[in-house]
Design a protein around this nucleic acid. Structure first.
Lengths: 211, 211
DNA sequence: CCTATTCTTGCATCCAGTGCATTTTTGCGC
DNA sequence: GCGCAAAAATGCACTGGATGCAAGAATAGG
């Protein structure tokens, strides 16, 4: 085990609880009275912390509403991807499964967020921005794989191609998220939705090129 | 001619001049002393307008830095796209050419923005958000074309597909923009760069599916 | 129980952004 | 030119987001 905490400890647990209290308070208030009518002061009062503490946890009001984005999976998964020789699209789909898991395991938060995202596309867009942190790292990983797969490419061409691959795949993730957020009754999880979108992309690609 | 102004008139010309003065002042100051150190008050002083006027022109400081986004082309171009039966990707490329033209004709502004975008990816991201206005309209147009092209699809499947097509194509435009902004010496225009990215996508697609 | 560290809080402050009433500038018919 | 209506620019007051700082409270670990 590298460092995945033998046990959280009181301090860490309280920290997570405070964080969650703020998140829920923010979502609750925005759900009740709308985005503009909700102030950081009120959120803090509901969450039972000082307004100043709010900003110790989140850089902005909207950051609290948007929640976290995807994170790169562990090194092992990454190396497996770099070395794999399966279809690039399918392999990337697996990588995204792993990356998305972190962000989506708190069901209560997700449900509350879904309402807010539906009412305020603005906030949903902020969440989408989180995918960008991702882009740089992901582009590097794809670049490494392309280097092994297609050594004939120049570094510039490879880098350009890696960026394009990543952009297109993230667009597909966004599609999955849009479909997911549009369904009011979430019978299926986000992971399933991601699979579907990648499948649809694969089906779609040939028709893009010729008629 | 529908309404494309027989002549701007003094009022309109002054308005455009003021707008441009604010834009240039903002870009200049941010270029000199950085984003955080630049206040609306100072921008207004340089542009020789009151701080209040600044907000009559732009809803936020960052909006002024980001500039305008792409706009849908005229109806004729749109209808031609809907009725066309060429390769979808190529036809969309043409549509984007037309849409991008508006936003990129002031060379001096573009040059100044390029510097800012380079230093503050944040601002560049805001500009990218402008592509989203676009998304809805564009999705409708693509949906209409798909309705004629593939009448066998259910409305839901068609709408999902239209969204996916649009997301992927906008990702390609973003790629073009990233490459364009990365080149410090802009020998080629943005339109050429868009062509290149779409060509690269077409070349890339087959390798995504199988190895 | 003691101490170093980390977290929380209150306070002062800066600045983005808005509403409103007033003044200035422009367009236009005379 | 002249005056009047529309539109734009401005000043002012105010809300609320966000940050730095320093003092106080809670926690980890001995």
């Amino acid at each position: 085990m590298s460092e995945t905490a033998v046990e959280p400890g009181l301090r860490e647990r309280k920290r997570l609880a405070t964080r969650r209290a703020i998140l829920l308070a923010a979502l609750q208030l925005v759900g009740e009275r709308g985005l503009e009518a909700t102030t950081v002061d009120e959120i803090s009062r509901i969450a039972d912390v000082s307004p100043r503490t709010f900003f110790n946890y989140f850089p902005s009001k909207e950051a609290a509403l948007a929640g976290e984005g995807p994170q790169m999976p562990d090194d092992e998964t990454i190396e497996r991807f770099v070395a794999s020789r399966g279809p690039l699209l399918a392999d990337l789909g697996h990588l995204f499964d792993a990356a998305a898991e972190h962000a989506f395991h708190d069901a209560e938060l997700m449900a509350a967020r879904k309402e807010v995202f539906h009412r305020y596309p603005h906030i949903s867009a902020i969440r989408m921005e989180r995918f960008r942190h991702f882009e740089g790292e992901l582009t590097d990983v794809v670049d490494r794989r392309l280097a092994m797969e297609q050594p004939e490419l120049t570094p510039e061409a490879r880098s350009s191609r890696a960026r394009l691959v990543v952009l297109v795949c993230i667009a597909t993730m966004r599609h999955a998220w849009m479909c997911f957020a549009a369904e009011r009754d979430s019978s299926e999880g986000i992971a399933d939705r991601i699979h579907e979108s990648f499948a649809e992309l694969a089906e779609l690609l040939p028709t893009l090129l010729d008629r």
